[in-house]
Design a protein around this nucleic acid. Structure first.
Lengths: 190, 190
DNA sequence: CGTCTATTTGAATGTACTCAAAAGCGGTGG
DNA sequence: CCACCGCTTTTGAGTACATTCAAATAGACG
């Protein structure tokens, strides 16, 4: 399996020589999944961080009233997983499921620790990644606090114009924090 | 100024010897501010990360309709600042203001980079810190998606029982994403 | 003590939800 | 390749949660 797509992405933050790329490749596994395949179940401990080479992974959970909420979409080029479960080794409260046929790199905790030791600049890479994730997550909260459902939907369209074709509307609704019913009404209003 | 309180906190993630503590101390500055003092204004670039030795710092912003939203409270033992402005060196969209008379450690970007070089385990320290912040921020989104204002308020009380005495209710309302009016009604309901 | 700010209360309104039913669409098998 | 089944989206009617605006009351600081 060719990891060049991944290395191109990493290269935006840290540059790796061929030896380092080789070491990375030895530490990871490739996973291919069909559409609608769970790669993490609630109650399971998330043993991996996943990099999406192709396809799209959705993270979601059910609240006390069994409403489904979508936490994130991870299309190609994104890392995903369940950070809380992974770092604390506690049972996940979230599902991870492919929306499309997907190809993933997965990296377990031991390999990640080894990676930090072998190639310390990965410590920086993941710190920067976390930083960006945190900024994006903070933005998402601010969107919720500052904007109506209507405005959030428009912003989503602008931010992820390609996802709208790939993801069922009900999942987008559950990401935006509204019901599919209401999203449908919003879309009808123009 | 005695930084032992800070070192105790750092010690939960990385252990520092006296030499390392000395180096840290040389790289940082101490800042004392009265209550209701702005330590960062909108439009300013946030040049520092702040560690709260005592007191409490509130981060907030105004949306397009000039509604005020509280992003975070940082009581003693917390790091605060404006990550986005700090890492990208862009004008802040948020204010940072002391709620009480506060004592802060501040660390600028150059010193932080130097810290990473002098004491590389700080790279790990801040990675872990970012990780925890990210988890907390994700939790906050989930709270918004899963729970009513009433439930969010109760959870806030449990999570930060001491803040309720120290912080005006309108700020708590703006943190919970509701109006002070509505928070007042919720509180009256029992 | 007086002033300024924070909180409470009332009445009307709006945003988003629930439940139910109909319509649309897509994948699978015959 | 078409027809059917099941899932997704739309539409309608009634409702709940939370807001706005205004005014009254309470609290805190100088």
């Amino acid at each position: 399996m060719n990891l060049d797509f991944a290395f191109e992405r990493f290269d935006k933050i840290i540059s790796l020589n061929d030896e380092e790329k080789g070491r990375f490749q030895e530490l990871v596994e490739i996973l291919e999944v069909d559409r609608k395949t769970k790669i993490l179940n609630v109650g399971q401990i998330c043993r991996y961080e996943f990099f999406v080479l192709s396809g799209c992974i959705r993270t979601f959970y059910y609240d006390e009233d069994l409403n489904e909420h979508t936490t994130m979409f991870a299309p190609e080029g994104w890392w995903t997983g369940n950070l809380k479960s992974f770092v604390r080794e506690t049972p996940s409260e979230h599902f991870l499921e492919s929306i499309e046929k997907s190809t993933l790199i997965r990296l377990n905790k031991n390999s990640l620790e080894e990676l930090y030791i072998l190639i310390p600049k990965f410590e920086r890479y993941f710190r920067v990644l976390l930083q960006n994730r945190l900024l994006a997550t903070q933005d998402r909260i601010n969107n919720h606090l500052s904007f109506s459902a209507d405005e959030r939907y428009k912003k989503f369209l602008k931010a992820y114009p390609n996802l709208i074709q790939r993801v069922p509307l009900k999942h987008i609704a559950s990401y935006l924090g509204i019901t599919p019913t209401y999203l449908s009404r919003l879309r009808a209003r123009r």
